[in-house]
Amino acid sequence: MKNWPLWEVFVRSKNGLEHRHFGSLHAADAEMALENARDVYTRRNEGVSIWVVESKNITASNPEHGGELFEPAQDKVYRHPTFYDLPDEVKHM
């Protein structure tokens, strides 16, 4: 029979922080994936919340398109606060 599919595991390490990708594991269904994630990735008290998603459901960008996807953002310096000149007297803005 078919083998257990692969799942990606995201863990929130404490409230206030985002879920972060922790790794992956195999499980037959979502319930089992959650339980396995708890047993595999939070043995040392690493989390307060877990997301699991079957790996095949993730759509990833292609690294070959990295240039067209991400490089155009490099020269948009006006999106950053340091682009704008302010007199020194204005300390915080």
Partner: peptide, 11 residues
């Protein structure tokens, strides 16, 4: 029967 289950039972 699987690594994941092994870890769970040990817990």
């Amino acid at each position: 029967p699987s690594l994941e289950t092994d870890i769970a039972l040990t817990n």
